[in-house]
Simulated scan of single mutants.
Amino acid sequence: MAINLDSIHAGIALATLSLLLLYVLRYRNHPAEVFSPIAAWLRAFIYFGCCFLFAWLSGATEAALATPFIPAAASSSRYWLPLTAALLVFVLIAYWGIWAKWTLRFGRKLDIPAQLLFGLCWGVSYPLCFLGFWHMSANIGPQWPTWAVFLLAYSLISVWQYLWQDLYWDVYIAPEHDTAWTIKWKVPCTHIPNVTLCLIYFVVYDAYWIFIALQALALTGCSIAMRMPAPWSKEITPPAKRHPFVFGLVHGGGYVAEDPENDPHLKAIGAPY
């Protein structure tokens, strides 16, 4: 039986609109200085739904479904297996190792089912969004060489991720989990090489599903590492510290300790501030 993408995405659109309506009616005016797990989940899943819809409208979803998990180019490349293994090892070290080590938890509980669900939804929707940018770039320049499409897609992904993560995700969705120091080191050690290397890998091998799988592995690690509170959690979770940004906006600049030298949360991850 053929998959009816239109019907599936109509359902996703309806679910996303329903979540948006619930959020507007119940949580839109929730005080910013109090972290609400259910409000954070609603905001996140509204965005996840938008990512799925963007990937569908751009043609990324259809292209992914038409591609096998192991790309056809793998059979003619002796480098495919070692490169795939190297990327897998990199993601495990970068996200389950470095990112996790430098992540504040403030005593939040490990809740594997909720954090696994959140991480997988996060980890599938984000790469679909990235692939949507790839297809959008290819549609903008249908006659462009691959390197030009890559540069445009990479630029769009980088700008979008920077603005979205800094101005919204780390302010309104993720619980406080960083400091200025950890952000300074996490970005060049994990996020930048991850997007760069995995996108190049995708372009070379047309490896849609491995690209998605690698990002899902990375972001599931992030969800577990930062102990994303379940929607029903009653734990007191520090809200993100809002730092001034341009045009009166705020951004997620990380936790600021009153006494950095003696702060137990900073000591737990070995961060100086």
Rank of each mutant, 00 (worst) to 15 (best):
W232H: 08
E62M: 01
P175L: 01
Y168M: 05
I46M: 10
P68V: 02
Q215T: 09
A13V: 13
D259Y: 02
W99G: 00
T103K: 00
L65T: 12
N29Y: 03
S76I: 08
Q115A: 02
T182H: 10
A63Y: 02
A94L: 05
G11V: 04
K109L: 09
L131W: 05
G49Y: 08
T179G: 07
L120R: 08
W99K: 09
W41C: 04
L22E: 06
W147F: 14
L57Q: 14
A40F: 04
I38K: 01
Y205P: 13
S125P: 03
W232Q: 11
I269Q: 14
L83W: 08
L17W: 13
A73I: 04
V171N: 04
G119P: 02
G253H: 04
A257N: 09
A230C: 05
E258T: 07
P193S: 04
T84I: 07
G248S: 11
T146N: 08
K101G: 01
G11D: 06
L65H: 07
M136N: 02
W99Y: 15
D166T: 10
F48D: 00
A2V: 13
F90I: 00
I3A: 08
W56D: 14
L92I: 15
N29C: 03
Y27K: 11
S75E: 11
S76G: 15
E62Y: 01
P145H: 06
D206M: 02
I183R: 13
H265Q: 09
I12R: 02
K109F: 07
V124S: 01
T84C: 12
I210G: 12
G253D: 02
K186N: 09
Y126P: 01
I212K: 10
S155N: 08
G119M: 04
R108I: 10
G97D: 00
W122S: 05
G252S: 03
R108A: 09
L88V: 12
L110M: 14
K184N: 04
A114Q: 00
G248C: 04
I157T: 05
G221K: 06
G254R: 09
I98T: 08
Y162W: 11
K234V: 12
F45Q: 12
T196S: 15
Q115K: 14
L219E: 02
A85K: 03
S76H: 15
Y47N: 07
W144A: 11
I173W: 05
I112W: 12
D178E: 11
L81V: 15
W185S: 01
I192L: 15
H30C: 00
L120D: 00
L199C: 04
G254P: 08
T16Q: 11
I157L: 07
W144M: 06
T84G: 15
S233Y: 14
V149W: 03
W232T: 09
Y95L: 13
S137I: 01
M1H: 14
G141C: 06
I38Y: 08
A2G: 05
P188I: 06
A2H: 11
V195W: 13
L88I: 05
E62F: 01
L81P: 11
Q161P: 00
D178Y: 00
I46T: 05
V250F: 09
V246M: 15
R105I: 02
A39Y: 03
L21E: 07
I183D: 01
A74R: 10
P244H: 13
L81K: 10
Y27N: 12
Y27T: 06
W102D: 02
S233T: 12
I38M: 07
V187G: 09
I140Q: 02
A240D: 00
H135S: 04
P264L: 00
